[in-house]
Structures are given as structure tokens and as C-alpha cells.
């Protein structure tokens, strides 16, 4: 007995992927993070293009594993993940919903529009995710994961992570 190939619409696949959490910051999904660049059917194979956040991010292999597992759980048999390097991932691709979830989680989201285009860094005003004050200071350009920097609020005195712009 043969069954018809199961080829759900890409819109449905996007909605499944929007339920896959980032392994390091599980409050946001891989779609919120903006790292899934394309989903398409090619000759009966589902091709998902994924771009890395940082080239050495240890979560990359876990992310690929989670994508594959989610899609197989939904019944996709033929699938291929491809790495897409260019255009390089920018924090400007994090969705508005993703930014709001980061703030609720205690991580200051990247300040929109301050990504380091051409490698030029800006020093944006970062709001404290706890008390909302903009009276904050950078403690270190490098934080607990490659994508974060260490900050401190001068008003509520709490340290916090800032999702830095690239």
C-alpha cells in the first residue's frame, strides 16, 4: 500500500517552526530570532535554510537538531537543512514579538536599527529590562553567551544581559 506524499503548505511549516524554542533563550522561537531564512519544497524534499547567529555559537547544532525533530514529529519524511551565510544574520531580524518576550524574560533586546552595518559599532542607549530606566552602563562587551553583553542599571542597581546588535 502506498500513501500520497505529505507536502503541507509552507505557511503551515512556518507556523510549526514558530513553536520551536531557541535552546539558549527558550522564551523566543527560532522564527522570532530571524534565523530561518527560507522554507520551500524542492522535488518533494522540504528545504529549510538556516543562518547562524554567531559563527561559533555552540547552539547551532542543537538548533538544527530541534528543527529536524519538530518537522519529523509533524510527519515530514524528506527534509534537508542548508546553511545560508549571506546576508549575514542581523539582530534587526528579531521580530517585535521576540523583542517583547526578551524584555519580559529579563534580557534587554537589541536596540532597533543599531546593528553594526559594515562592522561599525554604535553605542545605543539600553533600557533596563527590570525597571525601565535608561540610566544604564556597559560592564562588558561580552556576556554569558556570544550574543549578549553585560550591563548594569544605575537606578535599580541590577545587572542584566543585553542582546547586543550585530
Amino acid at each position: 500500500m502506498t500513501t500520497a506524499p505529505f507536502h503541507p503548505a509552507v505557511e503551515e511549516i512556518w507556523s510549526w517552526l514558530s513553536d520551536v524554542p531557541d535552546p539558549e533563550i527558550p522564551v523566543i522561537s527560532l522564527v522570532d530570532l530571524g534565523i530561518i531564512r527560507d522554507v520551500s519544497w524542492q522535488d518533494g524534499t522540504l528545504v529549510v535554510k538556516v543562518t547562524p547567529t554567531y559563527s561559533g555559537c555552540p547552539a547551532t547544532s542543537v538548533i538544527n537538531f530541534e528543527i529536524e525533530r519538530a518537522l519529523r514529529d509533524h510527519g515530514i519524511a524528506d527534509l534537508r537543512l542548508e546553511r545560508q551565510l549571506s546576508p549575514a544574520w542581523t539582530t534587526d531580524w528579531i521580530s517585535a514579538e521576540g523583542r517583547a518576550k526578551l524584555t519580559d524574560y529579563g534580557i534587554a533586546p537589541p536596540v532597533a536599527g543599531s546593528s553594526c552595518g559594515g562592522g561599525v559599532l554604535s553605542n545605543p542607549v539600553v533600557g533596563c529590562p527590570r525597571c525601565g530606566s535608561s540610566n544604564t552602563e556597559m560592564v562588558s562587551r561580552f556576556g554569558s553567551t556570544p550574543c549578549k553583553a553585560g550591563y548594569r542599571c544605575r537606578d535599580c542597581l541590577e545587572p542584566f544581559d543585553y542582546f547586543k546588535c550585530i
Binding site: L85, A88, G119, I166
Partner: peptide, 13 residues
């Protein structure tokens, strides 16, 4: 060019 574009963002930090 693609590798350089990616790496440049990290190296700026």
C-alpha cells in the same frame, strides 16, 4: 566574501 561578511561583524566587537 560570505565568510568575511559574517566574521567582520564579530571582529568589530
Amino acid at each position: 566574501a560570505e565568510i568575511a561578511e559574517k566574521a567582520l561583524k564579530e571582529v568589530s566587537y
